[in-house]
């Protein structure tokens, strides 16, 4: 299955990939097994055969706050991405097309790299003064600080790939520049917008740091809830496994669709492949 010339190289390659697959897949398999393990088998790491139970799933989905946490995470991620695309698309187009925005391009990159440690204190204090700690709006605002730059940076790369003559053509065809932008250029970068949106969604969905410090009680997002399963009083491994799978599965499915766009997006036009 490898195109190496020597047989030993093929065997070594096969072995290396097999080990890599095992290392990647093992934690997932194990978390899944843990989620269907009956409570009586808890704390026995060497037991692989047991009667599966749906107790943990029932408990988490029907009796815990996790469905509410899922909804919170979804609302936050969806709103953040919607705002990011709304402000990011026109700006990225401008950065890609007009003279005099070279500096702006790089400040977007710099913003993308801003450590959350700098921003969390003001966010916390302002929300505290507004009595908005424990509100989804606060988390959305905080998530905008990293989702907006990332989404914009992605989009710049995608707009750069659209030939300028396309909007020139539309303008010669009788449209204004803005019409050319939304009738011709936006449709042409639709796959890129999708990829940027999905990536931004995943980033927001996965965030713990801001959500941990800006939410509580009602407004907790899924990662915060997952962290809450392991307290100083102990851990409920089965339920935590369920919560982890719930957080991970949708993201893995989404990521599958954007993988091929991801590299171009991350490079943002800075790396030409």
């Amino acid at each position: 299955m490898f195109s190496f010339s020597s047989r030993s190289a093929r065997i070594a390659a096969f072995f290396a990939i097999a080990v890599a697959l095992l290392i990647v897949l093992f934690p997932f398999v194990w978390v899944f097994l843990e989620s269907i393990k009956p409570a009586s088998f808890g704390g026995k790491p060497d037991v692989w055969l047991f009667p599966p139970t749906s107790d943990n799933w029932n408990n988490v989905l029907l009796q815990s706050d996790v469905p509410a946490n899922i909804l919170n995470s979804f609302v936050v991620a969806f709103s953040t991405v919607a705002i990011a695309l709304l402000v990011g698309c026109p700006a990225a187009y401008a950065f890609s097309r007009f003279r005099g925005y070279q500096g702006a391009r790089y400040s977007i990159l710099a913003a993308e790299m801003m450590p959350p440690a700098i921003l969390i204190l003001p966010f916390f204090l302002v929300l505290y003064h507004l009595q908005m700690i424990d509100s989804l709006a606060g988390v959305i605002a905080a998530h905008l600080s990293f989702v907006v730059p990332v989404v914009t940076w992605f989009l710049i790369g995608f707009f750069d790939e659209v030939p300028r003559d396309l909007e020139n053509q539309a303008m010669v065809d009788g449209y204004t520049r803005f019409q050319a932008f939304y009738k011709v250029i936006l449709p042409a970068v639709r796959p890129g917008i999708g990829a940027a949106g999905v990536f931004g969604f995943v980033l927001s969905w996965n965030d713990l740091f801001y959500a941990l410090l800006l939410t509580g009680g009602e407004s907790r997002t899924l990662p915060v809830a997952i962290a809450g399963y392991w307290t100083f009083r102990g851990v409920d491994m089965g339920k935590m496994a369920v919560a982890i799978l719930i957080a991970v599965i949708p993201v893995l499915i989404l990521s599958f669709f954007i993988q091929k766009h991801l590299v171009r997006g991350i490079g943002g036009g800075a790396v030409k492949y």
């Binding site: 030939p163 003559d165 396309l166 020139n168 053509q169 539309a170 010669v172 065809d173 011709v184 449709p187 042409a188």
Partner: peptide
């Protein structure tokens, strides 16, 4: 009307 080098088809 203009015809561009790279055709610029939508």
């Amino acid at each position: 009307a203009m015809v561009f080098q790279n055709y610029a088809l939508y």
